[in-house]
Deep mutational scan, measured.
Amino acid sequence: SEHYTFDGEEQAIRFMRDMEAKNLKYELQIHNGKYIIQVD
């Protein structure tokens, strides 16, 4: 699995939509205002 970190919500949402379009599962965590997305 890989981790991707985003500072902004818009970037994170765009990335998650992209993952959904590719049928990839992901998990979102928010730490200290950063959006951390783990992709299986």
Rank of each mutant, 00 (worst) to 15 (best):
I37N: 00
Q11D: 15
Q11N: 08
I13H: 10
K25V: 09
K25L: 07
N23M: 08
M16K: 01
R17C: 12
K25G: 07
Q29T: 14
F15N: 01
M19F: 04
D40A: 12
E9K: 08
Y26T: 09
N32K: 07
L28N: 00
E9R: 09
K22A: 11
L24S: 04
M16L: 09
H3W: 15
Q29D: 05
Y4L: 05
Q29R: 13
Y35R: 00
N32D: 12
R17I: 11
M16A: 05
K22M: 13
E27Y: 12
H3M: 13
Q38V: 15
E20M: 07
M19R: 02
A12I: 02
K25H: 11
Y26H: 03
D40R: 11
V39E: 01
G8F: 14
E9T: 04
D7S: 08
E27L: 12
Y4D: 01
E27S: 14
I30E: 05
F15G: 01
D40W: 15
I30Q: 05
I36V: 10
A12M: 04
N23K: 09
E9G: 03
Y26S: 04
A12F: 05
H3P: 09
F6I: 03
E20D: 13
D7K: 04
I13F: 10
K25W: 10
D40V: 14
A21R: 10
E10L: 07
A21L: 11
R17K: 14
M16G: 04
F6N: 00
G33P: 00
R14T: 10
E2A: 13
H3E: 12
N32A: 08
D7G: 04
G33E: 04
A12H: 00
K22I: 08
H31P: 00
R17A: 13
Y26E: 00
A12Y: 05
I36Y: 12
H3R: 14
A21P: 02
I30C: 11
S1H: 12
E2K: 14
L28G: 01
L28K: 02
L24G: 03
M19L: 15
N23C: 06
I36S: 04
E10K: 05
Y4C: 07
I30K: 05
M19A: 09
E20Y: 04
Q38Y: 15
I37P: 00
I37M: 02
M16Q: 02
R17D: 09
K22L: 13
I30G: 01
Y4P: 02
F15H: 02
Q11I: 05
E27I: 13
G33D: 06
L28I: 09
Y35S: 00
N23A: 07
L24V: 12
K25E: 06
A21T: 08
Q11K: 06
I36T: 07
I37T: 00
E20P: 01
Q38D: 06
E9F: 12
G33C: 04
V39A: 04
R14G: 08
I36L: 08
N32H: 08
K34E: 04
E9D: 04
H3Q: 13
G8P: 01
E9Y: 14
V39T: 05
I13V: 10
L24R: 10
K22Q: 12
E2L: 14
R17V: 10
Y35M: 02
K25N: 08
E9M: 12
Q38E: 08
K34V: 12
E27M: 11
M16D: 02
M16T: 03
